[in-house]
Structure formats: C-alpha cells, structure tokens
C-alpha cells in the first residue's frame, strides 16, 4: 500500500501549519509592503498633480499680474509722456515769454540809450555850436553871440507884419501882465533896452516887458504874451539835427533787432 494514512494526516496538518506560517511571514508582510508602497506612490502622484495644478494656477496668476503690470506701465508711460509734453509746452511758453520780455527790455534799453545819446549829442552840439559861433563872431567882428542873437531877435520883431503882427499887438495890448521875454542866457542891459525899443517902435506903444533866464530854451530868445509867441532859437536847427541823427541810429539798430528776433524764438 503506497498510502500511509498516518503520513497523510500528518502531511495535512503540516500543510495547514505551513499555510498559517506563510500567511504570517510571507503574504501578509509582502502584501502590506506593496500596498503601502502603492499608497505612497499614489500619494506622491496626487501631490505631484496638486503641485502641478498649483504651479499652473500660480503661472496663470503671474501671467495675469504681468498683463496688469504691463497695462499699468503703459498707462503710466502715456500719462508721463502727456505730462512731459505739457510741461515742455509750458516751459517753452515761459521761455518765449521771458525772451519776449528780455527783447522788449533790450529794445527799451536801446531806445533809452538812443535817447540819452541824442540828448548828449544835442547838448554837445549846442555847446559846440555856441562855442564855434561865439568864437567865430568874436574873431570876425568882435561881437558876442548873445549880442547877435539879440540883434536877430530885434530884427525879427521889426520884420513882423501882417496878420501875425496884428495878432501879437492885440495880445500885448490886452495882456494884464507884462510880456515875458525868456532867454537861455542873461541878457545884457543894452540888449534888454534894444529889445524894449524895438517892441515899442514895432507896436507903437509902451510895452511892459519882463525878462527871464531859461536855460532850456537852447540859446534863443522868445517873447510870450497872452498865448502868443515870437521866438528865435537854434532849437529848430537842433531838432532837425536830432531827427537826422535819430534816423541814422534807427537805421543802425534795425538790423540788430531783426537778428535778435530769431534767437529769441530758439529759446
């Protein structure tokens, strides 16, 4: 008999014990280890997915912020450009105004200079003319300039005629105050007498006269009464001289002003 029943029973028992041992020492620990690892891997994968999702979300947020930043930057840049343009325009306007003011001041200063120069030239010319005339007259006829001026004035008085003489005579007669004779220099007594005589003879009456010295008359004599005036002075000559000099200066100044204008625009 090949089957030994005791051995069969013992082997069944042995096999059952082996099943228990294998379960206890092999399958359970191995399966647990595999499960734990699978769980860990699944968790890692889930974590990786979560991280990826988070990274994607953060990237989108960053992209959005970047876009916003770009927009804000563009807006700020545009605003800054506008402000800079306005500021530039304002500065240009200010500079233009300042240039205009400066130019006006300069022109005014030039005009003042011209005026002062004219005045100086006039005065100098007057002095020179007087000096020359005085010297010439003294040299030629031993006559002073003042004497000659007096003579010229008396001659002009005597030469008055027509409407002018009549109007003046009326004025002299009706004047409440004595007629005023103004001269740039002190008239000598004989000259005063000569003028008084000439007046009396010309208007055939006793004319009351008051003499006065007025340096601004510019070497001349004038008779004023009741709004009428008879005068002789070199002021007329000087006025024409001044006019000539003024025109000359203006001709000189104009190119400068024209040159100065573009430069003010450049500022």
């Amino acid at each position: 008999m090949l089957i030994d029943w005791f051995t069969v029973g013992a082997q069944v028992l042995n096999f059952l014990i082996l099943v228990w041992l294998m379960k206890r020492f092999l399958y359970k620990p191995i399966l647990n280890a595999i499960d734990a690892r699978e769980k860990r891997i699944a968790k890692e994968l889930a974590d990786a997915d979560a991280t990826t999702a988070e990274a994607r979300k953060e990237r989108e947020e960053f992209q959005q912020k970047n876009d916003q930043f770009d927009q804000q930057r563009a807006a700020l840049l545009s605003k800054a450009k506008d402000e800079a343009k306005t500021e530039r325009q304002r500065l240009l306007d200010e500079a233009r105004k300042a240039a205009d003011v400066l130019s006006a001041k300069r022109q005014e200063s030039l005009a003042n200079d011209a005026r002062n120069l004219n005045r100086a030239i006039t005065r100098r010319t007057q002095d020179e003319v007087f000096a020359i005339a005085r010297k010439t007259l003294t040299d030629l006829a031993t006559t002073s300039l003042e004497e000659r001026i007096g003579e010229v004035f008396t001659r002009r008085l005597r030469e008055l005629n027509g409407e002018a003489k009549h109007v003046l005579a009326e004025a002299l007669k009706t004047a409440a105050e004595p007629a005023l004779v103004r001269s740039a220099f002190d008239l000598p007594t004989d000259q005063r007498a000569a003028i008084q005589v000439a007046l009396n003879e010309t208007f055939s009456a006793e004319i009351r006269v008051r003499f006065e010295t007025a340096p601004d008359l510019v070497s001349g004599i004038e008779l004023t009464t009741n709004g009428q005036k008879v005068a002789w002075s070199i002021a007329d000559y000087l006025a024409s001289l001044e006019q000539g000099v003024g025109e000359l200066l203006k001709a000189k100044d104009n190119p400068k002003v024209e040159e100065a204008k573009p430069s003010s625009q450049d500022q």
Partner: peptide, 26 residues
C-alpha cells in the same frame, strides 16, 4: 516524508521571516 516536509517548512518559514523582517516601503 514528514522529516523532509518539516525541513521544507522550516526553510520556507525561516527564509520568509528573514526576508520580510527587513521589508521597506521605499
């Protein structure tokens, strides 16, 4: 038969125990 079965059981059980006592989930 019984003796060799015990020997096999011993080898299998001890071998499994030796290996699984140092299991790792890494």
């Amino acid at each position: 038969t019984i003796v060799f079965t015990w020997a096999l059981m011993l080898v299998l059980a001890v071998g499994a125990k030796l290996i699984t006592c140092k299991l790792t989930t890494e």
